[in-house]
Design a protein around this nucleic acid. Structure first.
Lengths: 209, 209
DNA sequence: TATTATTGACTGACTGACTAGTCAATGAAA
DNA sequence: TTTCATTGACTAGTCAGTCAGTCAATAATA
């Protein structure tokens, strides 16, 4: 019943501005990195002047931090998804790694977020901390849950990797890094990499008697 | 018989300077990144003034590129080492991954080189290209050699991973990245990670009948 | 050996270009 | 008419790169 508050043109614009600016900031920071990006570049991309940016964001650092927050979609949904997986534990692992590929390797925002954490982390330690809390911790927990359940069900071997699930799943990171670095000049076959990765961690290299 | 050419103090200094400068540049660029490092910072660390840097290096970009070249020890030695491995193929894989850990994860220069490639790669595409030629290509080739020989010997299963060895070995990258990001605040147990990694790719997760 | 001339590594003040952040003025919406 | 999001000229500071000048080390000469 409470009708959408009718906003004037002015108020609409004002309500939109921060998002427009944050998205422009993302593109510019991706292209040039934090230091080399001028606040004016962001402004020009939005189609306003520098003053407008400072009307909405206190400093360039604030702008960067808010941009990071804006593109971050925490992994809590991955944990949630991981809990809902069904089928054999091999299938669950396969689907879990598929989720990771879709997020870390294929999703541009998440990929660039990782790059920001790597490249600007020393300037923004809070960003690194938050990334650890929101991505790494849930990721490890979800992976360990599946592996432990798989062992309990008798489908997986018990072994050191159950306590250190990243050692099994980490090849995702290599693909992600190589996508970052070489995606344009040496395209990777992501599907083939994915299949090889799942195959080797499920079956191992050693031929079975 | 040809005695060491006796160099005067002056000539000795001049011969030493470039290395001193490159090592100081490495430290400064590691601390602050390319853009935020001032040429004067590098000079101060050496104990000279800015002019001296420009006496030896044309521009700041040149200084950075030469610094990268100075700390790069190509992986060709890894390929050579890989060829000399002996024992069962499981043991060879184990030793090969150990070599990678020693280089990528533990060796500061190589670790920071990877960081530079990631962080400054867009500014220095030649650096990225060279890294691909000198590190990635030899690395893949050496890994594939071992895997294929292992299959030929009947010790390893044939499977998609034989053609894409990075899918087996890539967890190294995750550890490396996490060392870069969280080494100070959340220390990793590198040895445990290594053991878990080798265990899972050799034996896989699935329990054997 | 003692004295003088020359070299060249090194200096540091300077220029020019660039940019984060400010704020008084503007003009379109309400 | 009032409000306020927006402008853009301005300040204050930074830093890459320059270059005329310095002086200690070396070479040449007496």
């Amino acid at each position: 019943m409470p009708a959408e508050k009718q906003l004037g043109q002015r108020a609409q614009r004002k309500a939109q501005r921060p998002q427009e600016i944050l998205e422009a900031a993302f593109e510019e920071f991706v292209e040039r990195g934090y230091v080399a990006t001028r606040v004016e570049d962001v402004a020009r991309r939005v189609g306003v002047t520098k003053g407008t940016i400072y009307f909405y964001f206190e400093t360039k650092e604030r702008l960067f931090e808010e941009m990071i927050r804006h593109i971050s979609v925490p992994f809590s949904d991955i944990s949630a998804n991981a809990k809902n997986l069904s089928g054999s534990y091999s299938e669950r692992i396969r689907m879990f790694i598929r989720l990771l590929y879709d997020r870390i390797v294929m999703d541009r925002n998440t990929r660039e977020l990782l790059r920001f954490v790597l490249t600007e982390g020393s300037r923004f330690p809070q960003v690194v901390d938050r990334h650890h809390e929101e991505f790494i911790v849930p990721f490890k927990a979800a992976a360990r849950d599946i592996l432990e359940a798989g062992v309990a069900a008798g489908e997986f071997r018990d072994g050191p990797v159950i306590k250190i699930p990243d050692a099994a799943i980490g090849a995702t990171m290599m693909l992600s890094v190589w996508q970052m670095l070489f995606a344009d000049r040496k395209p990777q076959d992501v599907e083939a990499f994915f299949e090889a990765h799942v195959d080797v961690i499920l079956n191992g290299l050693i031929a079975k008697g």
